[in-house]
């Protein structure tokens, strides 16, 4: 029963959604089903947020209680969760500090702490790219050497000074990179991967719809 009902739901949902794209939403019931089901998913997702809150509280509370390594971070997480969430849940009519409008505690924390921290994390990506590129571009084999040369040329082409340098060698050099490297070799490989991935996704969807694939429910 625990397997049969989800398999039936998966079959019906998958079949109806697959069929619905072939019918006009303005003229048929089946054509309108997709947006309707997406609303259901959003509603279910909203309810499950409570599960997330319970999980994050339990994990961090246990870590603090047992004074696990790095428990200070867990404590900070717990405090942050409640300091961000509680004032935003209280009605704004009680005080302008409540709710999530401009000037509220939530908005202040989001604009002055959350956003800059996100931007910092994203900014660090540049340094990570540099260290990964250093490892990837070491010319240890013929393939790695080709990769190194291609990457150097493409990187030069992407910055104005580099492009000017390439143009000084040959005025058509940047266009060749665009035509043969980016829109040629690079595009062909990307399309190969995309076609393979799309077929893999379609095949997996079909296996799920037909109930052949049940591993996502824990069945082997």
């Amino acid at each position: 029963m625990r397997t049969t009902i989800p398999v039936i739901i998966a079959f019906l949902s998958g079949l109806v959604l697959a069929v619905s794209i072939f019918f006009r939403p303005e003229e048929t019931v089946i054509g309108r089903i997709e947006p309707e089901l997406l609303v259901w998913v959003t509603i279910i997702g909203g309810f499950t947020l409570f599960l997330g809150a319970v999980s994050i509280t339990r994990v961090n509370y246990n870590a603090v209680r047992r004074l696990k390594k790095g428990w200070v971070y867990n404590l900070l997480t717990l405090v942050s969760v409640f300091v961000m969430a509680l004032p935003s849940l209280l009605p704004a009519s009680w005080s302008p500090l409540f709710g999530d409008a401009e000037g509220s505690i939530y908005d202040w924390l989001f604009q002055r702490l959350d956003k800059p921290m996100m931007a910092t994390m994203f900014g660090m990506l540049a340094f990570y790219i540099a260290s990964a590129a250093y490892r990837a571009f070491r010319a240890r084999s013929a393939e790695a050497t080709i990769l190194l040369l291609t990457a150097t040329v493409v990187m030069l082409w992407r910055v104005p000074m580099g492009e000017a340098l390439l143009r000084s060698i040959n005025p058509d050099f940047p266009d060749w990179i665009n035509t043969y490297v980016m829109n040629g070799v690079n595009m062909a490989v990307q399309r190969g991967i995309i076609i393979g991935a799309a077929l893999g996704a379609a095949s997996m969807s079909l296996r799920i719809i037909l109930g052949i694939e049940r591993t996502y429910m824990g069945k082997q």
Binding site: G196, L199, G200, A201, Y216
Partner: peptide
Amino acid sequence: MGEELYAASSYLS
């Protein structure tokens, strides 16, 4: 890469 991700569950089973 790509399709190998979707093939993994079948391959492992």
